[in-house]
């Protein structure tokens, strides 16, 4: 479970970075939702969107706000995206920031069980382990 936090993004490639960040958070086992213009519209405007996103944040979902208008209660991380960063790399930097404030931990598993066994056999063949 993450801390109750939302991320506000501004700058270039906001939509792409928000999507990349959301996918990475889900890969890491966290719940994340992107609050973009389409979502805000479907929720009936900024005010209900803030309310709905507040509920999500309160329940441990990391809300990624691309409009600067969805500011649910709880901790907030405002990020200005560097124009030189690709969305993937910008997302990676934001993950560091989220880890830095204790909102997430960056523990990942490297291999599937099958891959792990392939690698173990390869390392044994190479003499690194025995």
């Amino acid at each position: 479970m993450s801390k109750n936090i939302s991320v506000g993004l501004t700058g270039p490639n906001v939509a792409e970075t928000a999507n990349a960040l959301g996918m990475r958070l889900i890969e890491l086992g966290y719940n994340a939702e992107v609050a973009d213009a389409a979502v805000v519209e479907r929720l009936g405007g900024p005010e209900p969107a803030v309310f709905a996103c507040g509920l999500l944040v309160r329940n441990g979902v990391i809300v990624i706000d691309t409009l600067s208008s969805v500011r649910p209660d709880g901790e907030r991380l405002d990020i200005e995206i560097d124009e030189n960063d690709t969305p993937d790399f910008a997302a990676e930097k934001i993950l560091d920031d989220l880890a830095g404030v204790g909102a997430i931990t960056l523990e990942e598993t490297g291999y599937s069980p099958e891959e792990e066994e392939r690698i173990r056999e390869r390392l044994a063949s190479l003499g690194y382990i025995e």
Partner: peptide, 10 residues
């Protein structure tokens, strides 16, 4: 046991 992949590097 785990293998020290890139993910092991903090």
């Amino acid at each position: 046991m785990t293998t020290a992949t890139a993910s092991a590097i903090r």
